[in-house]
Design a protein around this nucleic acid. Structure first.
Lengths: 333, 333
DNA sequence: ATGAAAGCGCTAACAC
DNA sequence: GTGTTAGCGCTTTCAT
């Protein structure tokens, strides 16, 4: 049977109060009894019952993590980084995949609350983020990662999406591309990237294509399907900017199936620099977001918030990096 | 402030016992009061406090999941399936990555216990599984997925590794390959696959290569490195059996870098059929394990165990499927 | 420096 | 059909 604080108290011959005090390092306890209590705890292999502690209003050392989909390599990677840093700081993680569905998001947030999580990290990027707003209002410890809610005062660690789009476009433009198609899902982060992309086009007096259609979900299948459409249009692009590596791979498949050589006949650039970017052949030029920094920073921000160490909110915007590999080259005009 | 069972009781004008009874559907309550209580619960948006319920010895509706690495696509996928089925049944998931380290496994299991999880699903596959044995002894609800502890009486859903190895070898042998190298990590599941592989070789009177070296960790880098070694040996293989798709991709990279054509010059077969198998070009022939079935079944098994619905343990062995794509062809002798 | 006692929110005998 | 009461394991005043 699991030993309780009573067992420890009885064994040492003190009250549970005393034991509680040495555990929490509160009040004043003589070195002698402290030592004896510690020994007893060790011998009995006593572990405080989190349920009971939580019931008394203390923390549970648990964080809830909301992501769109664990099976998406970028988020799998990000989750792993968050997990590592969270464990480092003594937290356990509840992870829930929302599939960009605000209903699921809401349901999971309620779940998190009934389970008394100390804080919530949100990377889910639902278009309707009413639930998040609500949490902020309640002053519940919450942070956003890889998402940038501009109008919300919330701890944030994200990459600069506008800059990412700008960098991708600039790279392609410098290679002589003027006819660039876009592969994207219609979510806020992607719209920012597209704005950055358009800005670079404008600065170079290049008129954007008018046939942008958003994919319904992020998958290689959709990347392929939409690229097929672009390539069979009357005015096929010489380059494709995919706002996710998975979509980029779909674009590659489409091009190859049509007998096009990458990057000689068509340039393709992805986004995220997930591991698949270095796996595909030719390896994918892409815009990198550091899941490591993203994960580490947000956990520390949330931790500080939970501990009440800071009142003001912090917004960290990381600079995305262009990683040039083998899917982009001089435009073949 | 969050409302408690007392608030509900007061509002309706009954005792907390009555409220508790309608919540748990125990005892006998008149339809009239039942209805009134339910209404009050709704109005106050009352949610039972899990901590308090758990303290009374009830379940927490939480399951702990142990996997080697969330960033590994196979396990990311499996986790997602488990997550979906678990939510379906009303469970929340704690996920921890063990990196095949028994120390971490032990630590996380203790963590799970202090957090009062109802059960644990283990896919971590540590060589030293003392902690798992201990759990079984304690009669703690536990199940193994994608792992087959032969000598342990434990709920299990796994694919038949021996059969998987056998099928891979047979496919290659039928294509005329006699000189096949292996890429694997030295863990139990892989050793079973290799045994199946060797069995097929023996049945066809083919002598296995003697230069098998296990990789220290599963990565494309290691797949590439070890394939480099095989291909520069005096007697390079005509086919490679990689016990993980990631390793297979590394093998592809090595072959391509040496100017070999796949599958004309060398055949490569992977394992798992994770999404990367259909992403790489040429797409990868591989042995498929159904993460969907694996995940769904183990969660149901654990659920039944938690609810005390079954005493005997079940071992489900799924049949792995050969998925022929474009990296295997007739041996070029 | 230590302990008695109340109470966190809930459930389960047991009584009526 | 409903309520009284004790207690799950712990923390925290408030005494001493």
């Amino acid at each position: 049977m699991k030993s309780t604080i009573y067992d420890v108290a009885k064994k040492v011959g003190v009250s549970t109060t005393t034991v509680s005090k040495v555990i929490n390092n509160t009040g004043r306890i003589s070195e002698r009894t402290k030592k004896k209590v510690l020994e007893a705890i060790d011998e009995l292999n006593y572990k405080p019952n989190v349920m009971a502690t939580a019931l008394k209003g203390k923390l549970t050392s648990t964080i809830g993590l909301l992501i769109p989909d664990m099976a998406n390599p970028f988020f799998a990677d990000l989750s792993r980084r968050i997990e590592d840093e969270a464990h480092e700081l003594g937290y356990n993680l509840f992870i829930c995949s929302t599939d960009y569905d605000p209903k699921k998001e809401k349901k999971y947030i309620e779940l998190f609350k009934t389970k008394n999580v100390d804080g919530i990290i949100c990377a889910s990027g639902c278009e309707d983020y009413t639930s998040i707003v609500q949490l902020v209002k309640e002053n519940f410890p919450i942070g956003a990662v890889a998402r940038n809610y501009n109008n919300l005062e919330i701890d944030t660690v994200a990459t600069d999406d506008f800059m990412g789009g700008y960098k991708a476009a600039t790279h392609l433009i410098n290679l002589g591309h003027k006819n660039i198609a876009i592969l994207a899902k219609n979510v806020e982060s992607n719209r920012s990237r597209i704005n950055g992309f358009l800005q670079a086009l404008e600065e170079n007096k290049i008129k954007p294509r008018q046939d942008l259609n958003f994919v319904s979900s992020i998958s290689t299948e959709n990347g392929k399907k939409f690229t097929d459409k672009y390539l069979s249009s009357p005015n096929p692009p010489t380059a494709i900017f995919a706002l996710n590596d998975l979509l980029a791979v779909g674009a590659m498949q489409s091009a190859i199936e049509r007998g096009l050589s990458i990057p000689q006949d068509i340039s393709i650039i992805g986004y995220d620099d997930s591991f698949i970017a270095s796996i595909v052949i030719p390896s994918l030029t892409t815009i990198a977001q550091s899941t490591y920094t993203l994960g580490k920073q947000i956990v520390n921000l949330i931790d500080a918030q939970i501990k009440g160490e800071k009142q003001e909110r912090t917004r960290i915007l990381l600079s995305p990096q262009l990683v040039i590999r083998n899917t982009t080259a001089q435009a073949n005009l």
